[in-house]
């Protein structure tokens, strides 16, 4: 464990808490892509299959359980409790275009050809692109509530912090995970546009609005 990794994970935790807070305080899931949230639940469930047979640490176990539970809870909130506040007509990204290629890539690139390892690879590739329905929705509406942009910023920071973590681990532990690193760099790159607007507008106290 190094500080980049720790702050990355804490940022991930913070993003989920901000999202829950957004839903609770506005009593609405407006502006949140159900598809992205469903993809994240898929990512956590397919990645953490080892929860049942592999013990890493209490930290690792607790975080995994939290990510699975919170992502399922968010789906419940969106699908049932706040259902009327979700507008499917603007959440139109075709998730088949993400699920299909992730499955193909997982069959091509994995560390072992076993069910958990292929699912693990699948989850890594899927996580890299799971934010796209959300970003697509943002692009379509052209604006976002400030709290939603904080959620996205915390999520992006989590991914960005994993990169120095890998560099650090490469030098201190001689550890390289080419699948996670490649997918992680792609995933972080997807946030660059968002980060640009976040830093130049939201953090200057303006509303998140994309140029027409």
């Amino acid at each position: 464990m190094n500080l980049f990794r720790l702050f990355g994970d804490l940022s991930h935790l913070a993003s989920i808490i901000i999202l829950l807070q957004k839903i609770r305080s506005t009593r609405s899931c407006r502006g949140i892509s159900f598809k992205t949230q469903a993809l994240y639940a898929t990512v956590f469930i397919t990645r953490y299959l080892d929860l049942f047979y592999d013990w890493v640490s209490l930290y690792n176990f607790t975080m995994k359980v939290f990510f699975i539970a919170s992502s399922c809870y968010i789906l419940y909130l969106m699908r049932y409790k706040y259902r009327p506040t979700h507008d499917p007509s603007i959440d139109t990204f075709r998730v088949e275009y993400l699920l299909g290629p992730s499955a193909v890539l997982a069959l091509l690139f994995h560390y072992r050809f076993t069910v958990p390892e292929v699912f693990w690879s699948f989850s890594i590739f899927l996580e890299a692109v799971a934010i796209l329905p959300q970003l697509f929705m943002l692009q379509r509406t052209g604006e976002a509530e400030t709290i939603t942009t904080h959620y996205l910023a915390a999520l992006g920071a989590y991914r960005a912090l994993y990169i120095p973590n890998w560099i650090y681990r490469y030098f201190t532990e001689d550890m390289v995970d080419p699948i996670a690193v490649t997918a992680g760099i792609v995933q972080t790159a997807l946030y660059l546009d968002f980060f640009y607007v976040y830093f130049t507008k939201v953090l200057q106290g303006q509303k998140f609005e994309l140029p027409a």
């Binding site: 994970d9 592999d54 890493v56 560390y111 390892e117 693990w120 550890m175 390289v176 995970d177």
Partner: peptide, 10 residues
């Protein structure tokens, strides 16, 4: 293939 890296990351 080499052995998979330890899955200690989230």
């Amino acid at each position: 293939h080499e052995a998979p890296p330890t899955k200690d990351e989230l």
